[in-house]
Write a protein that binds this DNA or RNA. Structure first.
Length: 549
RNA sequence: GGCCCCUUGGUCAAGCGGUUAAGACAUCGCCCUUUCACGGCGGAGACAUGGGUUCGAUUCCCGUAGGGGUCACCA
């Protein structure tokens, strides 16, 4: 009886690995081309970290004329969520992260190195597991989960390093004959890797981001095929990234400590290991402590959060890129209008330590991103958002011509307004410009310096009768307000007012404020000249009338 | 607890043996201005700590403290 007999008994139908090695030949890519990927699990809300990883991987592939693919790691069926795959695809799409290969929907895919869903690759893993068993590098383990747990408890109470290794690996030295007999008797088993490692030896690893890291060798006989017949992450990672030709594995640094295991797996399988780039995790301040952004506790951990809030994907990408390469913001300042794919991303310049997620900064970036958009673009994007999340805003925007004018106020010039950080800000920003919203609602008018009824009435009436002409240019328009102020005994110039304390009760600015408040019921607004232009004379008159009621 | 990683202002961070220790966000003040936003100018604010090495350490080494990660038939 040989290892081969055992392997044949366990995986009677598995193909020889040469079949797969030939089926998935080396990629024909230019020198230096990076094959990168993102490999999420369909376990629910897509994590912002997945977007982060995807962004980085996509960028590297683009910059080197390489390949970026998406692989679905669905080997944990217990945690899998219905719709999980489409959520992932959709989320990546929301951020314009489009894969060259991989899943394109829950059940379709493109590319020659598939299947790109691990549960569809079962046969492939079996072939390689069989290969390992034939070599005596893997073995069936008959320990039940309870037994393994017991071993762990013993180790803990004896203060010994826990795990399935060395003398604790009970099934490691079972003879082929015994194993075959147990299997024939119907005993349940899983497949474990027979680690050749020794804990007292060190390995050196050079990580693209973390630099040189030394670890003890792995000596754990980890599970490679679970009771459900599917592989564990470690095994699938080695097989898949080998067969799919991944050159750089980017993943969160929670994987860093598995590197010794993974390197060993590649070694024993006879594969060339990829390079690794372990990115720092996005952290969050929690009562003074830093911790990983968590799907469960933090809404901002979900990629969908940004969509719901209406933060443009472009802004999120800029923020993420800024965390990834902090020189991004310098580049952005020097190149305010270039698309971000022209930014030269350097993975080895990524920070070694984790960054606290800064929502304030994100929103600041978002303000700038939105300020550069045309009225048309703002219109389209906020409408798309409103259709899903805000019926009232959608209704307001249904008058497209008018909305375009409203959104065009102080936009498109050298110093565009920066008061919208997210689409959910839009409504509050423009609602007073819509007559049906403004006129039909009770408004509170908080007059400032000039606040007695008669004066206000005089200002509004006189302004409409005598000083407002729809076709005035801005200078004429404002001169008229000065004239109005003068006629009513207020200072025509603010300077004059300040130079002659006591002479005037108010100045032209105060008169403007009355107009502004009567018009909008707000103390602060964008440029009033433009507002009046958009409202038009009829609306202005109605608003004054309402203010005087 | 073992192993691994990290530590520059409130936050993100330049720096890589000699710098007045950049910059961005936030914050404060001033200016611009009919309000706000923008913009401009300026202020306050940092090398966790103790030892080395060195003519000289934020930078190199060791310890301490603090933080993070990981130790599954989860990824």
């Amino acid at each position: 009886m040989t290892y081969k007999d055992l392997a044949d008994l366990i995986f009677p139908n598995a193909k020889n690995i040469s079949y797969y090695e030939e089926k998935y030949p080396k990629r024909n890519l230019p020198e230096g081309a990076v094959v990168a990927r993102v490999a999420p699990s369909p376990t629910g809300n897509v994590h912002i970290g997945t977007i982060y990883q995807g962004l980085i991987a996509r960028k590297m592939a683009d910059q080197t004329k390489g390949v970026f693919f998406v692989r679905i790691e669905d080997t944990d069926q217990k945690r899998e969520v219905e719709d999980g795959i489409s959520q992932i695809i959709q989320s990546l799409k929301n951020f314009d992260i489009i894969p060259d290969e991989g899943m394109t929907s829950a059940d379709t895919e493109i590319g020659n190195y598939g299947p790109y869903k691990q549960s569809d690759r079962k046969k492939i893993y079996e072939a390689y597991a069989k290969y390992l068993i034939e070599q005596g590098k893997a073995y069936p383990c008959f320990c039940t989960p309870e037994e393994v747990e017991e071993i762990r408890k013993k180790q803990e109470s004896a203060k010994i390093r826990p795990g399935y290794y060395g003398i604790w690996a009970k099934c490691r030295n079972i003879t082929v004959e015994e194993a075959i007999e147990k299997i024939k008797n119907g005993e349940k088993y899983i497949i474990r890797f027979k680690s050749p490692g020794r804990e007292d030896r060190k390995i050196k690893h050079h990580d693209i981001i973390k630099g040189n890291v030394d670890f003890p060798e792995n000596d754990q006989d980890i599970v490679i095929i679970k009771a459900d017949g599917l592989p564990t992450y470690h095994f699938a990672h080695a097989i898949d990234d080998h067969l799919m030709g991944t050159t750089i594995v980017t993943r969160g640094d929670e994987w860093l400590s598995s590197v010794p295991l993974h390197l060993q797996l590649f070694q024993e399988l006879g594969f060339k290991a990829p390079k690794y780039a372990h990115t720092s995790t996005l952290l969050k301040n929690d009562d003074g402590n830093k911790r990983k952004i968590s799907k469960r506790k933090d809404p901002e951990a979900a990629a969908s959060y940004y969509v719901e809030e209406g933060i443009p994907s472009g802004a999120v990408k800029e923020y993420l890129l800024n965390i990834a390469n902090s020189n991004f913001e310098n580049w952005r300042r020097a190149n305010p209008d270039k698309p971000i794919n022209e930014f030269d991303f350097q993975i080895n310049k990524m920070s070694v330590s984790g960054a606290l997620f800064d929502m304030v900064k994100l929103l600041d970036i978002s303000k700038i991103v939105i300020s550069k958009m045309s009225a048309e673009e703002v219109y389209e994007k906020s409408l798309t958002w409103a259709k899903k999340y805000d019926k009232e805003l959608e209704e307001m925007l249904s008058d497209k011509d008018y909305s375009l004018k409203v959104l065009g106020i102080e936009r498109g010039n050298k110093k565009p307004r920066k008061d919208i950080a997210k689409w959910s800000d839009v409504k509050e920003n423009i609602i007073y410009m819509y007559d049906d919203k403004f006129l039909n609602k009770d408004q509170e008018y908080q007059y400032q310096v000039i606040n007695n009824k008669e004066e206000i009435e005089k200002i509004l009436k006189l302004y409409l009768e005598k000083y407002y002409n729809e076709n005035d240019d801005k200078d004429t328009w404002f001169n008229n307000i000065k004239e109005l102020a003068g006629e009513l005994g207020f200072a025509k110039e603010v300077k004059e007012f300040k130079q002659n304390p006591g002479k005037y009760s108010a100045h032209v600015g105060d008169v403007s404020t009355v107009l502004r408040i009567a018009l909008t019921a707000r103390i602060n607004t964008p440029d009033m000249y433009e507002i009046m232009k958009v409202l038009g004379k009829e609306s202005i008159a109605k608003r004054f009338e309402k203010a005087l009621k």
